[in-house]
């Protein structure tokens, strides 16, 4: 366990020592702030138009803002995961971990945990925007929290898939393109479900990354959705361990 934490700590430190993390955070925050202000202006203009106040500001924030965030994060997460193993392989530093008395599972979990530290930073920045409204209006914090939890889980799943793709190659850019492609395909699986002629369309709909986020975004906490993201992440972490173990043979 201490091995995992040591690796995670150094990984997180290295993520934030690179300008990439700061650039990504800055750009994401800028775009999200832009969208947030737009949504607020939109809400203010429409205030009082609805007969029974059926749409509150929490719907705007947790619904539209965090819904938009998923698209942005789909673009950004592959950039954060591409280095994890590909760069270590390219710089011949993977040997440091493979000849130390730590197991491959510990290495993979350590790196993943370090990445989750970055994910947490993104989630906190996302939480800062509704927090700014806290003093001027009544927010449904439960609903915002569900949206943030969904974002965290979704980024965790993105991260696990990206970690796996990064372990396949020694070129970080290929890892980025590969994991973006993989995530987009899993995301878009639900397109198949719209087509009536495809067999098992419910299965495809269920497997899609996006469907499970939608209910959380609406404030519905369903443990099946949580389990879906955990299983998705677990699967790719396991595949990463298998892949790195294969390398020795």
């Amino acid at each position: 366990m201490s091995n995992i934490l040591n690796i995670a700590r150094t990984e997180l430190k290295r993520i934030f020592l690179s300008p990439l993390a700061w650039a990504v955070l800055a750009v994401v925050q800028f775009i999200m702030g832009f969208v947030f202000i737009n949504l607020l202006v939109d809400y203010a203009n429409n205030a009082g138009m609805q007969p029974d106040d059926s749409i509150g500001v929490s719907d705007y924030v947790a619904g539209s803002l965090y819904g938009f965030a998923t698209i942005l994060l789909l673009l950004v997460m592959p950039l954060m995961t591409m280095r994890l193993f590909a760069e270590e392989r390219k710089g011949n530093t993977l040997v440091l971990l493979t000849s130390a008395p730590v197991s491959i599972t510990e290495v993979v979990l350590g790196k993943f945990l370090g990445l989750l530290g970055f994910v947490l930073a993104v989630v906190l920045l996302m939480a800062a925007m509704p927090l700014a409204l806290h003093w001027s209006t009544n927010l449904d914090w439960g609903r915002v929290a569900a949206g943030l939890l969904g974002l965290f889980l979704m980024m965790m799943a993105f991260g696990a898939a990206g970690l796996f793709v990064s372990s396949l190659t020694r070129e970080p850019t290929i890892a980025a393109v590969g994991s973006f492609g993989l995530l987009l395909v899993v995301w878009l699986l639900n397109i198949l479900a719209y087509n009536d002629s495809i067999p098992f369309r419910e299965v495809f709909n269920y497997l899609s990354l996006i469907g499970h986020y939608d209910s959380l975004r609406r404030g519905i906490f369903n443990s099946a959705d949580i389990v879906y993201y955990l299983l998705f992440s677990g699967l790719f972490l396991w595949l990463t361990v298998q892949r790195l173990d294969m390398e020795r043979n």
Binding site: K13, R14, S18, G91, N92, T93, V95, L96, S99
Partner: peptide
């Protein structure tokens, strides 16, 4: 110590 030292340049 492998042929190329496994060092992290940013540390």
């Amino acid at each position: 110590l492998p042929e190329q030292p496994p060092v992290y340049g940013e540390l």
